Computed example of a mutant assay.
Amino acid sequence: MATQVTPPPLEKMGSPSTQHDLEAQHLGLMDTDGGASLRRQISVQLSPEQFERLYLQPGGAKAKGDLSKRFANPTPLGIASFLLCLTPFSCFLMGWVGTTTGAAASLVGAMLFVGGLGLTIAGLLEWVLGNTFSSVVFITFGGFWWSFGYLLDVTNDVATTLGAASADYNGGIAMYLTWWSVLVLIYLIASLRTNAVFVALFTFLEITFWLLVAIYIRLAKGNADIEMLLKAAGAFAFLTSAMGWYLELVLVLDCTGIPIKLPVGDMSSFMSRRRHAD
């Protein structure tokens, strides 16, 4: 004779212990051969140094929400876009392969569609992920390459209108680069909470900008003796590129899962706020 099972009273089913049992049964529904239990989800914790390889947010501040888990990391795109303009430009400044600064006109397309567009897209994606610092850096430098691409584009006749050797033309560029030097200095200070490679990159870039300022001031005053300054600016721009290429390598190795961990010198704890004891 079958035994009839009487269900528990409704008021008891609403008790905390009964709800816990029902929840446990529900979570166990996927414990079958054909699927994985919801309780088997794995949470991966990144160290500050690992995180800084992926995101250049000062202090290791993580992106908001879960967008960084669903979207790709845009940082390698931004760095690559910057490097593909700066590296050949630094070679022109140093006079490699017999080039002069006149060869910069050959980079107009790259400045507009690689440096300008690539950095702006990367900056907007960093903004979506909540990485404020890297977003601001990428978008502003995207504007920098766009502006220089426009300046060097012969179809715009900027140099012809003002006169390539005039004080207005060279002095105007010198003033523009001066304030870029101030902005890069701010970025340098902020980078002290990212990693050592990023700090070195902004340090070399800051020196590069001031050397370019000195070059254009000399030209504005009619002094054409700028060969040594050009080579020095090119050398520091190349050192900036070297730091950038290293960061690009680190980022690409990490995002492709290649088990080669290159050091970047985590500085996320630098100048961190002290926690007061309760």
Rank of each mutant, 00 (worst) to 15 (best):
P74Q: 13
I186Q: 02
V44L: 15
D266L: 10
T6H: 06
M267I: 05
A214V: 07
A232C: 11
L188Y: 13
A233K: 02
W96I: 12
L125T: 00
K62E: 15
S134D: 08
M1T: 13
L112C: 08
D278E: 14
G60M: 08
Q19L: 15
S81I: 10
L119Y: 01
I217H: 03
G35P: 00
E11G: 00
R274W: 05
L54Q: 14
M1D: 12
F92M: 14
T101K: 11
H20D: 06
P58W: 03
K221V: 01
G163I: 07
L119P: 00
L205A: 05
W245L: 14
L253G: 03
L247S: 10
D21F: 08
I121T: 10
T178L: 13
T161Q: 02
N170Q: 15
L93N: 11
A63V: 14
T256V: 10
A122F: 09
S106P: 01
M175R: 04
T120H: 02
D266T: 03
V197F: 04
T178D: 02
Y176E: 03
G222T: 11
D157C: 04
F113V: 06
R40E: 15
W145Y: 14
V199R: 07
G34Q: 07
L29H: 08
W127Y: 14
H276M: 04
S37I: 06
V213K: 03
W96G: 00
P16V: 07
V250T: 13
T120V: 10
C255Q: 14
I186F: 10
W127H: 12
E11W: 10
G172P: 08
T32I: 12
S268R: 13
P58S: 07
G149W: 01
P263Y: 06
I42Q: 11
M13R: 12
D168F: 04
D21P: 00
S135H: 03
H276A: 09
T6Y: 02
F71H: 05
V114M: 13
S90G: 09
G234E: 01
S90N: 12
D153A: 15
M267T: 10
G149M: 08
K221W: 12
G130L: 09
P76M: 09
G142A: 03
G118H: 02
L249G: 02
W96D: 11
T194I: 15
A104R: 02
R40F: 05
F270A: 14
S106Q: 13
I189F: 07
R275Q: 12
